[in-house]
Design a protein around this nucleic acid. Structure first.
Lengths: 288, 288
DNA sequence: AGTCATAATAAGTTTAATTTATCGTGTTCA
DNA sequence: TGAACACGATAAATTAAACTTATTATGACT
């Protein structure tokens, strides 16, 4: 059984005659007859009833038609994949996003981009601190979005956004501990993200204080909300809680809101495919 | 792109080498190399990385593999369909069941039979009165199950079951109308199923009474429950309601519970395929 | 270094698909 | 009703493809 035979069969059903199927498939009518004959021999039954003027599917033919439709569809999909390859589209690209840049609009854009490039698997990594830079440097990811850049000489860097990091703590905790100035903070746990890279710095670290180091971004917000300590969080993530006065902003000599520059980065020595290029361009356009 | 090429590709991935794939597919190694080369030419990319000793999928290869798996599965399905055809299995059979024979056990059996014959579409018709016989006679359905047989000379008839039809009415209605004997019933609507065949008789009809004729079995039970009239219902369908005394059985000269013989029927002059034969045999075994 | 295993390539062969030409049959329309 | 037309089956010839044998190159194993 050949895919070609199945295609011929479907074209006949679709167009209603051997001859028109032949024309559409750029073959002669006997070739069509022969294809169907071979198929019928292999199946051991007639698929078309020729006793009528127009060929009609037999009950066997109908059963075959139903079950072979899936193949036609899958095959079209594969041919689209082939076209995507011929256009040099990458089968897979990686995009590393620093957790502080996460916001619903951006995620919606990423989803839309992914949908518009169905043959490229978009691997999204939500990372912290040096991890995004490392992923881009090691070419695990084609594109990164982060504030943390240690070795810009190897990277294309394009500033796209600002994120305000605000040191906050739970209001109850503030009252309970009677925090008046920066030194009071030393007695309270600081919630920080630990960097996987041992040489990587942490952001906004208060020297001399106690620290809770989390391995990732997942629960930092919840832990600070719960009043287990203080820490920096992106302003756009906590606007609701600030308005409800559940959290208070800390303002001291070293500890106060700071704007972070967020950049798109990609490796200078990397050949990018059309999808990665488009993603880069669209990310820049998205932030203007 | 050929189905054969896809199969070759999958065999290589599965077995890890061109040579073993060749052996498994009863071809020589160059034939395998050639197939893959053609496929790669058409896709415009390399699917295997040959720089390592063992061929490894490239990222393009992995994308191709994922998207082509569906075709492998569909094709195996089609080949099973082909085997089913070669065993002369019917692509479709019809089974007409008189509504009075309906019960959960039988339906469960029919479901199980259908599952055990995935390549035969089992069309189940729930019919009434002469409809089952007509369907079998006209060869719309291979097998029927009914008490109603008018022209047994054309049919194989095999008795399998008895169904007790009991004339019942709502208890409230009985009290309200003070039904003491058969003549009292004439004043109450009789709920009967109308036969589609004009020559077909109805069952248990009380001459001279008022009648509600329903076109099918669907609401007869509900209508009698609701106290809109009296009528015959299969005992096995109303045991719960009799126990709860919501319905009462009518016992008069002509109107009283009657046992109906239920038979399997099939057309004498019909060539049956293996699935219809098996269904016939299993239905008989099921009722013993 | 030498042997074994794997895959690419080339040339020749076989098989399968396709075409041209022809025939019979059913349809259409004057 | 019969002539022109359309459709599909068949046969023979042609073309294209797939496959095989033989050979070479390269990595792996000892």
């Amino acid at each position: 059984m050949t895919f070609d035979q199945i295609l011929v069969f479907h074209k006949i059903v679709e167009l209603g005659s051997f001859k028109s199927a032949a024309a559409e498939l750029n073959k002669t009518q006997p070739a069509i007859s022969f294809s169907i004959k071979k198929l019928e021999e292999e199946m051991g039954v007639e698929l078309f009833d020729r006793s009528l003027y127009r060929p009609t599917m037999t009950s066997h033919g109908r059963a075959f038609y139903e079950r072979s439709s899936a193949i036609i569809i899958s095959m079209k999909d594969l041919e689209n994949l082939s076209k995507s390859f011929l256009q040099k589209e990458e089968p897979e690209i990686g995009f590393s996003l620093d957790g502080i840049c996460l916001n619903p609009k951006l995620l919606k854009f990423v989803k839309s981009f992914s949908d518009r490039h169905p043959f490229t698997k978009l691997n999204l990594c939500i990372d912290t601190l040096s991890e995004t830079e490392r992923r881009v440097f090691s070419k695990e990811c084609e594109i990164g979005m982060t504030h943390f850049i240690k070795e810009p000489q190897f990277l294309d860097v394009f500033p796209v956004d600002k994120v305000t990091m605000v040191p906050v703590m739970n209001k109850e905790l503030l009252k309970e501990k009677k925090v008046k100035d920066q030194s009071d903070l030393l007695l309270i746990d600081q919630i920080v993200i630990g960097d996987k890279n041992p040489q990587g710095a942490s952001f906004g670290l208060l020297e001399g204080g106690k620290k809770w180091r989390l391995l990732d971004n997942n629960f930092k917000k919840e832990i600070i909300f719960a009043g287990l300590g203080w820490g920096h969080l992106p302003l756009h993530n906590i606007e609701k809680e600030l308005k409800e006065k559940k959290l208070v902003i800390l303002e001291f000599e070293d500890i106060h809101p700071k704007d972070l520059q967020v950049n798109l980065i990609r490796h200078k020595k990397h050949q990018f495919g059309p999808v990665a290029k488009t993603l880069w361009d669209e990310l820049i356009a998205f932030h203007q």
